[in-house]
Every structure is written in structure tokens, then in C-alpha cells.
Amino acid sequence: MKRKSGFVLRQVCGEYVIVGEGLERVNFNKMISLNATAAYLWDAVESKEFSVQTLTDMLLDKYDVDEKTAAQDAAELASKWIEAGIVEE
């Protein structure tokens, strides 16, 4: 999957949100809250193809977590992003 263009990660009072900006996102009127881990992954997959496995590997690299939990979290996050319409499959 791939990040759709026009979505920008912003920090608001210490919290992370994704906002639709730019011409192609002018009718995107919601904001998506992220925790610090999700924000890290969002930044890390900018302008590249990624899969649930990519996210899992990044989680394993960066955090002290077992593979099963990482895979589960990565899958959950990816489906959330797809549902929110901010990545394309």
C-alpha cells in the first residue's frame, strides 16, 4: 500500500493528527488522531510502497515488542488507515 498524497502530519498541543491539505484534499473535512508510534510509522513510510510486514519490521526495529504483537498492531493500523481513506491498497 501507499500513502495518498495531500495528507499532512501535524502536532497539536503534543498530540498527532493527520489533516487533508492541498488541492486534492480540499473536501476532506475530518482529522485523524494518531499516537506517537503511529505518527512515527506514518512519517517512515512517506513516498514508498509498504505492507503490513514493512510496518511490523519497523515496530520490531524501534520498539521492544514481540513479533506477534507487532504484527497484530501493524495489521490493525493498516486497516485503520485504509478505512480512513488516507492510504491506498
Binding site: 498541543c13 503534543g14 487533508g20 484534499r25 473535512n29 482529522m31
Partner: peptide, 16 residues
Amino acid sequence: PVRAYASIFSSVSAFR
């Protein structure tokens, strides 16, 4: 705060 941000942002003549 995040809700307040969204509320204010949507009320700005933002021309995003």
C-alpha cells in the same frame, strides 16, 4: 485540544 484545533481550523477562511 485536538477537537478545539479541528473546530477552529474548520472556521478559518483557510484556503488549504
